[in-house]
Amino acid sequence: MNGFGSPKKTREFHNHHFDSSIWNDFEFRNDDIIIATYAKSGTTWVQQIVAQLIFNGAEDLDVAEMSPWLDLRVPPKEVKLPAVASQTHRRFLKTHLPVDALVFSEQAKYIYIGRDGRDVVWSFHNHHSNANDTWYETLNDTPGRVGPPIERPTRDTVQYFREWLEKDGYPMWPFWENIRTWWEIRDQPNVQLIHFEALKRDMPGEIRRIANFLDIEIDESRWDAILTHCSFDYMKAHASKSVPGGGIFWDGGAETFIHRGVNGRWREILPEEDKARYEARALAELGPECSSWLAFGK
């Protein structure tokens, strides 16, 4: 990669969750892996997959500790950066930033996971509805928050979806720019796009594709262990190892964070006019090729 056309950071992104300025001080290594999503798109699943590839199917990895969300503003960068710098394994970090708020390195490899926005919202509603007082205190009351606090959500998932669509990602952060900026750099040689639906259809095939992209040779004697440890049942049973803070931020603990891992729950619930409004917005925001990929993973 010669750097021509390489993405450049053009802005900072701050809110109740984010402090994008941490990337300005982050020192990349030449084998770093960055796992990126809008959120609730399979991030934890892909972190587990990458951990299994790096550590050759090892049991009971503390993936949440190994692979922090770097641009989450808590703990502050003064705490987070030294911790990440001390890691001796191949690093695999998580971001939910759009490309233009991220420092993009030619040294790193970037995996971006997409998922239909309606599935994202259904997962986010579970995540948000089950957040406890500790979650709100951490996001709203710790120093460094920019903008308004995050409020408790309506229990009506359809109303939650409508507000998210009408206000572009409310009460979290903008959706369309996140998808669009990563789609625009999909041809960069150190970027790979994958899709939640594709992982559901063919997890073994997608894991091999990820391994090839990351230049990791799979030990076939450990292949069955890798697949077992990347299964939904295994991750649900070992959720405290995969979920931030071991699940202390959600009622019901880590198992609440790793909820159901299914798509299409909105199909029988969301009114037809809301489905059509989402699809029209996706087409207008993303264009036909990207909106089709986001909907179907093909």
Results as ranks from 00 to 15, higher is better:
G3M: 13
T10S: 15
H14E: 14
F18R: 04
F18E: 01
S20C: 09
S21Y: 01
S21D: 12
I22S: 04
E27G: 12
N30A: 14
D31W: 06
D32F: 11
I34Q: 04
G42R: 05
Q48K: 10
I49L: 11
V50H: 02
F55S: 05
N56A: 11
G57R: 02
G57D: 02
A58S: 13
A58G: 11
E59F: 13
A64Q: 10
E65H: 11
S67H: 05
W69M: 02
L70N: 08
V79G: 03
R90N: 02
R91A: 11
F104H: 12
S105D: 05
Q107M: 12
K109C: 07
Y110W: 02
D119W: 00
V121K: 03
H125C: 04
H128L: 01
N130E: 09
A131W: 00
D133K: 04
T134Q: 15
W135K: 06
L139C: 08
N140M: 04
P149C: 05
P153Y: 02
P153L: 05
D156L: 08
V158A: 10
R162P: 04
R162S: 12
W173N: 10
P174I: 10
E184W: 00
R186D: 07
D187R: 11
Q188E: 14
H195W: 03
F196P: 03
F196N: 01
E197A: 06
A198W: 01
P204E: 06
P204F: 01
P204G: 05
G205N: 08
N212C: 10
L214Y: 01
I216S: 06
I216A: 03
I216H: 01
E217C: 07
E220T: 07
A225E: 13
L227E: 07
L227W: 03
H229V: 03
S231C: 06
S231R: 07
M235P: 02
M235A: 05
A239L: 05
K241F: 09
I248D: 15
F249Y: 15
D251M: 12
I258S: 08
H259M: 13
R260C: 14
G261L: 03
R267C: 08
E268R: 15
I269H: 11
L270P: 06
E273V: 14
E273Q: 10
A276R: 13
R277L: 14
Y278K: 13
L286N: 10
P288D: 08
S292I: 06
S292R: 14
L294Q: 14
A295H: 07
A295N: 07
G297P: 04
